[in-house]
Design a protein around this nucleic acid. Structure first.
Lengths: 351, 351
DNA sequence: CTGAAAGCGCTTACAG
DNA sequence: CTGAAAGCGCTTACAG
């Protein structure tokens, strides 16, 4: 008995023009199971009725051969890939990363691949990313918010690819969305500051994306309702949000409106930066100034003092959006096309 | 003249078995340009020599028809997709997100799509992700570190897909890598603490991935070389890294080793949490205790006091790894298969 | 419930 | 430098 391992059949000896990829294909499984390739295809996808017994035989053959379907072939034949494209504005905002993580955790186990597109809050970039992604014939699409160009909307519409919008809930926009009311959340945290006795409240925002502006509207509505319309003080910066900017904006507010007794920052990174700046400058929080943020990002509960903020359910949004999208991709009915997951005001020591 | 828009030709009236996808194909472009499909394919990919004049005619036809190549067809025919799979341990660590962002920024403009796989520091998950990704026949692969299972290595090897390892530089591992010496960096920051007069230095680490342990080795080497082998104090926690954990570990160190005059945390999030805890507890930093971190994450420069740390070039790593991978994917030579991008000790007020 | 035929839109491998 | 043929590995659309 030779110790030499059995050599695999060498097709290279046969002069042939075929391109042997060495892959185990559907045809191999079909041969092994003694059925036709279409039956294998159907059995493996669980599509249509395939006799129980055949189904099992196919499964066994597939396992025995270590068959892995080829996504490219599948996509080409069906004009639909297993990709789900997710469009977010930035990767530098923890909020979107957590959203993405939740989407992935839901979609990947179901056999979908996530394609991430970063738009940098830019309509042109969003269109470019969308164009490139749609060429891949994604099975589904998740986009952030509802503020995109006509062209982008037309591309989505025209592609026929199921799409779910996240972070905002817009019933008036049609389609499908999962999120919460940014406006109501802005209003609620402002109300919290009012309720705790503050009356000279500033709203400080950066980046100025639509959601940020909606929070500002909520802020304004709360002040107006409290009869403080003349005290509305919005300090807006188009710069990207950061802790350093939060500190700088804190100083600016106190310089421009020294009487300010509370600041609602549109995002926790600004608020965290402001809290640290206050510490450096010796500004007593909440004694002299109350500080509130938005999103309840990592670290906000660790601040000195801990930061009052609005906890937003981005992980749940990601998960529910993915779930809704899966229904759409499978052609199943969606009972709640616009899912409002709410928010929660978290009062901590900074206010 | 009717105001009704011109109806598109309706193939549905013709009884036929073909599946009209309505897509503009290579064949359409070929017809328009008056050449064969293969010539279009070659002209558009810039592959092989195609007569200048034909090339231009093809480009013009493609533009005129708005031709977008079908990635699935391309992948099926060539057994190679335009996907690059990137494997990272976690999305909750800013470090990896920035790495990813840099990779994307480099790869996307070059026409590649990034597929992100999260392994959660788990060998089994890594294998599963790898198996699923390799079925997509990625053009390239970027993986974090070099600590993976035999099975995973075999899959990568066997796939023949070009692969670049990031964050560590391992010449002894063969293949290709871009990163820096975690050990040297750990040693350098420890040396910095020694140089500034500290001698009871603890190393505090969480997560305990290989890179964290290497930093610890550097820490130990520095102490040993300084003749302080008996002062080595490693406090290790397998929990995931977080600011809250940093605070908790600070307390633990001071309880277990009250004489400690400096702590080197394996990651900035731990160090930031420790700094804030020190503030709460009234522990003077750096007066009573020096604190150093690792990575120079966002916010470290904003802390009170600002955090001494090691700035790591993850964005440059991502960019260079992507660049190296592109060369590999195109079959071009790589002059430096193991690229050490170094690190920088950033001394701030916390030490 | 199962299958034979055709086709998805490209590229490879040969020829010339 | 250009092309006709075949094939990549699946699924769709019909039939039965």
């Amino acid at each position: 008995m030779s110790r030499t391992p059995t050599a695999p059949p060498t097709p290279s000896t046969t002069a042939r023009r075929t391109r042997a990829t060495g892959r185990v294909t559907l045809a191999d499984v079909a041969r092994e199971a003694g059925v036709s390739p279409i039956t294998v295809s159907r059995a493996l996808r669980g599509e249509r009725a395939v006799a129980q017994e055949l189904c099992e035989r196919v499964q066994a053959a597939a396992t025995a051969l270590g068959y892995v379907p080829d996504p490219a072939a599948r996509a080409l034949a069906s004009s639909r890939s297993s990709h789900v494209a997710v469009l977010i504005p930035k990767l530098s905002n923890t909020l979107f990363v957590e959203l993405l993580d939740a989407v992935q955790n839901t979609l990947v186990p179901a056999g979908y691949q996530t394609l991430i597109g970063v738009t940098h809050y830019d309509a042109g970039e969003e269109e470019a990313v969308l164009r490139s992604f749609l060429a891949h014939r994604p099975a589904g699409l998740i986009v952030t918010g509802s503020d995109r160009s006509e062209a982008a909307n037309a591309m989505i519409e025209g592609s026929g690819v199921p799409c779910v919008r996240v972070m905002e809930v817009g019933e008036e926009e049609g389609g499908h969305s999962v999120g919460f009311s940014q406006r109501d959340a802005g209003r609620a945290i402002t109300q919290q500051l009012l309720d705790s006795g503050r009356s000279r409240i500033a709203y400080v925002a950066a980046q100025l994306d639509p959601r940020t502006l909606e929070r500002g509207e909520g802020y304004e509505a709360a002040l107006v309702q409290a009869g403080l319309a003349d005290r509305v003080n919005k300090v807006l910066s188009a710069e990207p949000s950061s802790m350093a900017l939060g500190g700088a904006l804190l100083e600016r507010v106190l310089r421009e409106a020294p009487g300010t007794d509370a600041i609602f920052f549109c995002n926790d990174d600004l608020a965290q930066g402001a809290l640290l700046a206050a510490l450096r400058l010796g500004i007593e929080v909440p004694g002299k100034l109350a500080v509130a943020g938005f999103n309840d990002l990592p670290g906000s509960d660790q601040m000195v003092p801990p930061l009052t903020t609005v906890a937003t359910p981005r992980r749940e949004i990601g998960e529910q959006a993915a779930q809704m999208l899966m229904k759409l991709m499978r052609g199943q009915p969606v009972d709640t096309p616009h899912l409002d997951l709410g928010f929660q005001v978290v009062r901590r020591a900074s206010s």
